[in-house]
């Protein structure tokens, strides 16, 4: 089972008089199959924490350690950019608020592309299976611009899971969807993440979505 261990994490942004400490001495542990919602006001640092966990931001202090199932522990906050990229494509999945699908690839190809990037064999077959799992098996040949917002986010979800990641990091995954669609996407998100045994860390303003998670970390109090 994968595991995330965060120790004494501190992140400051800006410099000099404008410097702002988003969080300090933060500790966190998450096991594969668990989910955690990061909540808080705008600017409280929840997206920044998510980016620290994904190795996109380097904290000033503390450690972010990932232990994928059957793999050695990687201190993501201590390795170089190349190693962090490699870790992300092999062991993490990302879901963005604005989907960020590649417009010139079909839904199936968008998913297969991630499997290919992660170095997996038979990427198309994996992608097809994953699209089926998120209920879009019939829309594989559609290009993103012809899909609804909810469908696009489900393709993004399939992309985040196709390579069997240790964790899925989702930044406001339903923030750009209407209430009903958001509910449907959230249901698929939690169901599929649990199915593949990955951890889920999501940033959200939506209390209903946060309530679906196993735990909540509220940021903003410093």
């Amino acid at each position: 089972m994968a595991r995330l261990q965060v120790d004494d994490l501190t992140l400051r942004v800006g410099a000099g008089a404008d410097a702002l400490t988003l969080f300090s001495g933060l500790n966190l542990t998450l096991e594969g199959g668990e989910s955690l919602a990061l909540t808080g006001r705008s600017g409280s640092g929840k997206s920044s924490l998510l980016h620290c966990l994904g190795g996109l931001l380097t904290p000033q202090a503390g450690r972010v350690c990932w232990t994928p199932a059957g793999q050695p522990t990687v201190a993501l906050s201590a390795v170089g950019e190349g190693a962090r990229s490699a870790f992300r494509r092999r062991h993490l999945g990302f879901v963005f608020q604005f989907f960020h699908l590649i417009p010139t690839l079909t839904a199936l190809e968008n998913v297969a592309f991630m499997a290919e990037l992660a170095g997996q064999d038979a990427p198309l077959e994996r992608a097809r299976a994953m699209l089926d799992a998120v209920g879009l098996g019939a829309r594989g040949s559609a290009f993103p611009e012809t899909l609804s917002g909810g469908e696009q986010q489900r393709v993004a979800l399939a992309r985040a899971l196709v390579h069997g990641p240790a964790a899925v990091l989702a930044d406001e995954p339903t923030g750009n969807l209407d209430g009903r669609t958001a509910d449907a996407v959230a249901a698929v998100l939690f169901e599929q993440v649990r199915r593949v045994g990955a951890a889920l860390i999501l940033v959200t303003h939506d209390p209903a979505l946060a309530a679906r998670a196993d735990g909540t970390l509220a940021l903003g109090a410093g």
């Binding site: 994904g54 996109l56 490699a86 590649i102 990037l117 992660a118």
Partner: peptide, 14 residues
Amino acid sequence: QRQLSALRVLGAPR
């Protein structure tokens, strides 16, 4: 820019 940035986040090398 955005597409390539998203791919960087997904783990595409520089």
